[in-house]
Nucleic acid binder design. Structure first.
Lengths: 194, 194
DNA sequence: CCTAACATGTAAACTGTTACATGATTCC
DNA sequence: GGAATCATGTAACAGTTTACATGTTAGG
């Protein structure tokens, strides 16, 4: 595969694979990729447009994507597609079971971990805020990610839709747990601040 | 609170609050903080020792922690405790419901999202790898986080132990979902690669 | 007319990790 | 004697975000 590449396609940054994957799922421009990521994989891999545009150029130099100017009226626009080499690199990465890193930064749950420093009513407020956060994310998943996944499904891509329940199940479990925790805090309040 | 601070304590980096919180829960040295984080909050907020040591110095300059040399034999060691100002800053942050950011980077789930690019047996392998990952994390939570939380509970801190079920529930839900997904892939295999 | 969305790009700042660097102590 | 653990630190690097920068088009 692609002996002529300047960049070793062995080890691309993760956002590069997101770009390749999104182009494969039908995204056309950098702006398009950003919009689709925000509506679909945001809660498992966010990406900013400041990363997307330079990466698209790098990927083009490496022969993994092909781009051409495709303005809409006087509004400039560059349309990309994934190449055969790009598909191969994407698939190689997808098959690699070494790199399945899960990196969570949850400030909300972190605060609950340290909540012994708070008074009882403040903890209840925190648990409720955490519950609202999950409710809000569930709403966004239903309003934005579900339709986006339906579009992909209509094009014959089933996994965006199959991946969604992971996210919803997680936040449904959290909403449930927040309720359990709040009930427990009511029935067994702390004596004093630990 | 603390008008004499050089550093505005209004907006510390998150690892600084982790350090304050861990000192409050009984951690003594930088090394200690690193060890406790690895055994407890790793899956919601990791931290490297290269961050801890410089931050401890900054926090000391800001009057939020107090440190003194406390060598063990000839092995140098600096022991810290949180100050009243430090407690106040920590509590102010814990009460702030604005900043409850959830930032997940899940390469495993991302690969599943793009799994239409794979062949059926490769997807099954991916789902199994994802299941193994959650099983491994569940094991670590039971072997490491649970005893660490029990130690905290014995000292009167109940929330490290109350926070744990969030993590276990999440990964139990994932194991279950991996099984469901694998079963579904067997009964309704894809016609051809999408 | 003005706001939102479309569309692309860069520079500076910031955050975080890995590697480098060093040394003591304990356990096998 | 050697490995693991205790213990602290810095420098270079990699990755990411925010802000700056610019211009078009559609809709209310």
């Amino acid at each position: 595969v692609a002996e002529h590449n300047q960049i070793e396609p062995a080890d691309l940054p993760i956002p590069a694979y997101v770009i390749l994957g999104m182009l494969r799922l039908g995204a056309r421009s950098g702006y398009d990729i950003k919009r689709i990521v925000d509506r679909s994989t945001r809660y498992l891999s966010a990406i900013s447009h400041a990363q997307i545009y330079p990466l698209l150029k790098q990927l083009e130099r490496a022969g993994l994507v092909r781009g051409r100017a495709e303005p809409r009226g006087k509004r400039r626009r560059r349309a990309y597609e994934i190449t055969k080499d790009g598909e191969a690199v994407l698939r190689r990465w997808l098959r690699d079971e070494e790199d399945l890193v899960l990196d969570v930064r949850d400030v909300g749950l972190l605060k609950l971990f340290f909540a012994d420093a708070l008074d009882e009513p403040e903890v209840v407020e925190l648990v409720r805020a955490l519950r609202r956060r999950s409710e809000r994310i569930l709403g966004e998943l239903r309003r934005e990610s579900l339709p986006a996944a339906a579009v992909a499904a209509a094009r014959g891509h089933r996994f965006p839709h199959l991946t969604l329940p992971f996210g919803t199940a997680m936040h449904e479990a959290w909403v449930e747990y927040c309720d359990t925790l709040e009930a427990e805090l009511r029935t067994r309040p702390a004596r004093t601040r630990a």
